[in-house]
Design a protein around this nucleic acid. Structure first.
Lengths: 221, 221
DNA sequence: ATAATTCTTACGGGAAACCGTAACTCTTCC
DNA sequence: GGAAGAGTTACGGTTTCCCGTAAGAATTAT
């Protein structure tokens, strides 16, 4: 039974409608926070006071502003929360729809639901909450297909690291030194080239610029 | 006096809270659409039936899906709408917060308000609607400062065209031919290089990849 | 332990991008 | 009409990136 819900979402407008959805489901005991640090603090307090939350609905990306935060986004928040309250149910509510990230969240962080923001997201969120309330997992329908069809490249952490470096303006030839410094392998320039080529080939891209644009669109970086 | 309002916004969850905000302001005659083409059609119909809208609240970026659209986003929708109904009030409600785009919208398209999605966006939107109802313009407060400081490069249409081509995977050396075909000037490779260099220099970027990433972040392309 | 396989790296030729300079064209002003 | 100036383009040298091949290292199997 879900009673106490915490919403972690920086967009007030989204917050409002999530709250409304919860109301419609008869869940009136809702709190909302605009920052990840606040979310973790609330959950910690809930556990301490023996009034722990039943469900966390969280975004992944949070806008940075003047308030400096330890936790910068949902991807960091979720593991932190898991440590504090392992039995908390978690639904992720985000614009980004990257199969590999979603799979990772279900696998590693054991989240209970994922809803992509977009057309019909409110209905989907409602469904998700209802499903999770029944102790089931909610997996975005259209994604089960997407994950099957492997024409979409599955970005590994390594891929994301390289692409991020490029997007930050690092020259390809300088990346090996950086990776060695960081202890990431493989670090050879050829390996990096090869990997980038492979990614571009599978996605039928010709240039790095195109890849960067794609990754930004997909919310991968 | 604002009575009839159209909301063009692809995220259902945002739509719901915008509607709620309008309700709180006593505006119950609201329609909402998830696609730009629908928005234009509704406005056209309103004008024809002599039941035109008083206010349009629109997002800028719309997710592409299976439904093919003529108008892909708010930046195209707004001028099209202006042609159909020049006196319509327009408030843009978007995540992207690029001073030059906002200035352009106020200047060229004569919009009445701009609200950035984020923390407190619902309150800001409410303020904006109230302000516009009083026949005043609503300009995001924190942006007046940002626009003053000109360290941010002002992207021209030409810039955006080139950068978009790069992001689509076109090789730099192939761009001149394309621009000549299109009738855009200057088309020389040197001019393109020079312009890209200038942009990168002012933004203190080193590589095209970085520029693409930046433009995607800012919603410029 | 050795062979086979896979993964990683090094190297080199060629293409593209980068960058400065100089020539060219077009407007503007006298 | 001619000169000055800004804007555009052409060209050449350098760097970086691209891409294929082959050598080397690590892992697994025999």
């Amino acid at each position: 039974m879900i009673k106490k819900v915490l919403i972690a979402e920086d967009h007030e407008s989204v917050n409002i409608s999530v709250e409304k959805t919860l109301e419609e489901l008869g869940m009136t005991q809702t709190d909302y926070v605009y920052y990840c640090d606040d979310a973790l603090a609330r959950i910690q307090k809930g556990v301490q006071d023996d009034q722990s939350y039943d469900l966390l609905i969280t975004d992944l990306s949070f806008i940075k502003d003047s308030r400096v935060q330890k936790i910068s986004g949902g991807l960091e928040l979720i593991p932190a929360v898991r440590q504090v309250q392992p039995d908390l149910r978690i639904i992720v509510f985000s614009v980004s729809c990257i199969p590999s990230t979603i799979e990772m969240l279900f696998g590693q962080s054991d989240i209970d639901g994922y809803v992509c923001k977009g057309r019909n997201d409110a209905k989907a969120l409602k469904e998700a909450i209802e499903t999770v309330a029944k102790n089931q997992r909610y997996f975005p329908r259209h994604l089960t297909q997407k994950i099957r069809q492997k024409n979409v490249h599955d970005f590994t952490e390594y891929d994301i690291k390289i692409i991020t470096l490029l997007a930050n303006g690092m020259r390809q030839k300088d990346i090996p030194a950086y990776l060695i410094e960081e202890g990431t392998k493989p670090a050879g320039l050829s390996s990096i080239e090869k990997r980038l080529n492979y990614i571009k080939e599978t996605l039928e891209f010709t240039k790095n610029e195109q890849l960067i644009a794609f990754c930004k669109d997909m919310g991968i970086i």
